[in-house]
Amino acid sequence: MPHNHNALRRPVLEIEDLSVGYETPNSLVHAVSDVNLTVHEQEILGLVGESGSGKSTLAFAVMRLLKGDAVVTKGRVRVAGQDVYALTPAELRSFRWKKMSMVFQSAMNALNPVMTVETQIVDTLLAHQPDWSRERALARARELLELVRIDAKHLKSYPHELSGGMRQRVVIAIAIALQPDLVIMDEPTTALDVVVQRSILDEIREIQQREKFAILFISHDFSLVAELASRVAIMYAGRIVEVTDSETLADGYRHHPYTEGLIRAIPHLTAEQVVIEGIPGNPPNLMELPSGCAFHPRCPYATEECRQARPPQYPSEHGLIECHLFKPQREAQHV
């Protein structure tokens, strides 16, 4: 079983009890609450959630790139065994990208419009390997472009001369330039059309197998993540409500009510009649979270207990679930 298989692998990313809040004039609004998550070496872990569920905030917190009013209020982040928040700024500058890197959500804007692709790749290499010669960095830049299937002549191109898919590939090339252990991909294909999206996903998988890094793949596209990742974490209102093996998503395994809703919302190409079921209601406002389980107002199974007490994490057949329905004795009644 893949879940047990992971136990043999070294963890690359360990998130423990992480909470991230945004300071507002009146209060601290938590975008990420009590998150526990582990990504093992060479694993692709998918992180799924609606807009505003805290996925990107979590990614920025792992990278220690939170800006402005966002602060980590508790918890720890370890990458390759190193506590990211224990590093000095200088150590952080060299640690980031060598051990962990990130492909931004709006990769279209992640490239500097006034600099050539070459400069932006070579800068990255030389920032971490100051003893490298320009020629060596240039040779590596060429190699990286070929790895993402872009002709090396585009080294001299400016971002506005490239298509969206090519720009995204350049950003991926920059992300893997220093062979990190972990690459966070924050909605890397969202801005692209389906055809380009498909070919980039195939490339990501291929490069990942060749270069052997782990990926935390963030997306709101449930079916895409289910296909790419070996394990999937589902995020709702800043909390990880379920972690499960991705093959359990297709069959009749029991899931968190929110996950079930997401599964029902996937359109099936081969179905005769397309009936897409949505989840009733809207994601909650993080400023006024519902009491108890944040999902209870939208949950068809909600009980009085759900309204009052926040559920703890229970082990499920293939991972963890944060839901009162999965309390061991109840489970016995249901099954």
Binding site: M63, S94, S101, P113, V114, D123, T124, A127, H128
Partner: peptide, 27 residues
């Protein structure tokens, strides 16, 4: 400084001086 390409450049380890002048100030 709030643009993605500046944050991305900071993340990829560009030294501060070059980050300010070449990546941000030029734009």
């Amino acid at each position: 400084l709030g643009e993605d390409y500046v944050v991305f450049a900071e993340a990829k380890g560009i030294p501060t001086r070059r980050l300010i002048f070449a990546y941000a100030a030029r734009n």
